[in-house]
């Protein structure tokens, strides 16, 4: 089956920033995104886990979006404006999709 090249952007961010990030992504013109819960992790700011958290403050979420390469830079600029001062990781990888018109 024919596949087409695209970019997969994976942003792990503090849960309280989720709403702001997805608003920025929409404004940057992404066609869609998926939000995944993250169980826990460890990084420069220490160890964290979502277990037992009644507040979202200590949790992280992962926002994934797939897009064509020409849309990548505006999206990264929009995401960076939100993420600049916050904990998080932005990762861009190559991927292949079946229906390129959707991204």
């Amino acid at each position: 089956m024919q596949t087409h090249e695209a970019k997969r952007v994976e942003i792990t961010i503090e849960a309280p920033m989720e709403r702001r990030l997805v608003r920025a992504l929409k404004e940057a013109g992404v066609a869609g995104y998926t939000i995944l819960p993250v169980l826990g992790g460890y990084g420069r700011s220490g160890e964290w886990s979502r277990e037992g958290q009644v507040s979202r403050a200590g949790g992280m979420v992962c926002v994934i979006c797939i897009l064509s390469e020409d849309r990548l830079q505006p999206l990264l600029e929009a995401a960076f404006a939100v993420l600049e001062r916050h904990l998080g990781v932005v990762c861009v990888t190559d991927c292949e999709v079946l229906r390129p018109g959707r991204f």
């Binding site: 503090e14 700011s45 507040s55 001062r85 916050h86 904990l87």
Partner: peptide
């Protein structure tokens, strides 16, 4: 509950380990 979430947004430079 309420304040840590607000501080993460408004004062991300503050160390959450200290206040939590």
């Amino acid at each position: 509950i309420a304040v840590p979430a607000a501080m993460r947004v408004a004062l991300p430079e503050a160390n959450p380990s200290v206040y939590l």
